[in-house]
């Protein structure tokens, strides 16, 4: 029986991610991991995230799980979700208020930055203003073939809630894109890592399919 570790570094609520994995992999040991050992002994690792990036990075460091997560990222299938996707990058423009630096340093597993939507003054096709956060169901264009897209039609809709998005340095790392004011990267893939800006656990049938694909993925 394989173990899927959902990394719990004390930021927010992992229940819906847990429930969704439990649903698609009833035979797996789905674990909310709070110790390095739980991450190191798992076969697959999920890095969720919600809330502000500076808090997420601080909590991850303070949790004592950072080292185990970086070890796992070397060869285990790793899935980042939402802020968990953004954390994989070099740095984020989301900073603590009053901070001196203009960037928050992130994990540096995928080259690139995290930026905020700048849509003030731009109008949607129906004439209304773009709102931030980008909240709701939006289509994902699959930019490259990947086992995690298996059985999911191109341009399927997924559920998003976010104000920041990733800008990968390498075109090759982009697995999916979404249009909101402009096209932005909504899924990334690099070796044993896959990550989504959207929330598969809240994206009904195709979100569950993506999680199911992750459970059997052999990178």
């Amino acid at each position: 029986m394989q173990t899927i570790a959902i990394v719990d570094y004390g930021m927010g609520n992992l229940r819906s991610v847990y429930q969704a994995f439990h649903h698609v992999a009833p035979d797996a040991n789905v674990l909310i991991a709070r110790t390095p050992e739980e991450i190191m002994t798992a076969q697959r690792v999920v890095l969720p995230g919600q809330g502000a990036m500076p808090d997420c990075m601080r909590h991850l460091k303070e949790s004592g799980l950072l080292h185990a997560l970086l070890e796992a990222a070397k060869n285990k299938p790793l899935l980042g979700v939402c802020v968990g996707e953004q954390m994989l990058f070099d740095q984020s423009a989301e900073i603590r208020s009053g901070a001196h630096s203009t960037w928050t340093k992130c994990l540096g597993l995928i080259p690139g930055d995290v930026r905020r939507f700048e849509l003030a003054g731009k109008l949607q096709p129906d004439g209304s203003a773009y709102k931030v956060p980008h909240m709701g169901w939006n289509q994902v264009r699959q930019d490259k073939k990947h086992p995690l897209w298996e059985g999911i039609p191109d341009l399927s809709s997924f559920y998003f809630v976010h104000s920041y998005y990733v800008t990968p340095q390498n075109q090759d790392d982009i697995a999916g894109s979404t249009e909101y004011g402009d096209w932005f990267t909504s899924a990334v893939a690099r070796d044993n890592i896959f990550a989504t800006q959207f929330h598969p656990e809240k994206s009904a049938e195709y979100g569950l399919k993506l999680y199911k694909n992750f459970v059997s993925w052999q990178p």
Partner: peptide, 8 residues
């Protein structure tokens, strides 16, 4: 509901 319904 949350254990059976996977939308927000």
């Amino acid at each position: 509901v949350a254990s059976q319904v996977f939308i927000p």
